[in-house]
Computed example of a mutant assay.
Amino acid sequence: MANHNELGKKGEQLAVNFLLKNDYKIVAQNYIYQKAEVDIIAQKADVLAVVEVKTRSSIDFGNPQDFLKQKQIQRIIKAVDVFIMTNNLDVEVRFDIIAIVKKGEDYSIEHLKNAFYHF
């Protein structure tokens, strides 16, 4: 497996652990609909948090969240609409980014809530 794939998988696991530690329930991981993949769908109370995980080995070329493109956001929103309808959910939906940067052997984790509103 390529290093960037391993880093991405590690980042997703760190994000899941972070969410669980902060009282979220993981509803789905790597949910795929058409060309979209939603990294994590988690719930806390009556809020469904749709989480895109962005992991980088450094910030030399920008922050992890800077690598989310408008087209990807549109695909994620469409996929989540289908997920909500398919599962007949009645919840508030929030789109978040968990940005992770590897720093030596450690990782910094930043949870950006309502992140899609900044695009």
Rank of each mutant, 00 (worst) to 15 (best):
G8L: 05
K25E: 14
Q43A: 13
Q43H: 06
P64N: 09
V38L: 03
K10I: 15
Q13T: 13
N5L: 12
R75S: 13
A15D: 05
A42I: 09
Y24P: 04
G62T: 15
D96T: 09
L48G: 06
L7H: 05
S57N: 14
K10A: 14
D46R: 06
H4D: 11
Q29N: 11
N30R: 09
V38P: 04
K10Q: 06
L19G: 10
A28W: 04
D96L: 00
N30F: 05
A79P: 04
M85I: 15
V27N: 01
F83Q: 02
K71R: 12
H4Y: 13
Q74I: 12
K10R: 11
Q70G: 11
K35L: 15
V16H: 01
I40W: 04
D81A: 02
A42F: 10
K44Q: 11
L20H: 12
D46G: 06
V16N: 04
F95C: 08
V51M: 05
S58F: 13
I40H: 04
K35T: 15
L20V: 15
A42N: 02
L48Y: 07
N88Y: 11
K78E: 13
Q43D: 08
R75E: 15
A79Q: 00
V53R: 01
I76Y: 04
S57Y: 15
P64Y: 03
T55F: 07
D23V: 00
D46M: 12
Y31P: 01
E37Q: 10
Q74P: 07
V47P: 03
L48V: 11
R94T: 08
I32W: 04
D60G: 14
Q74W: 07
F67H: 06
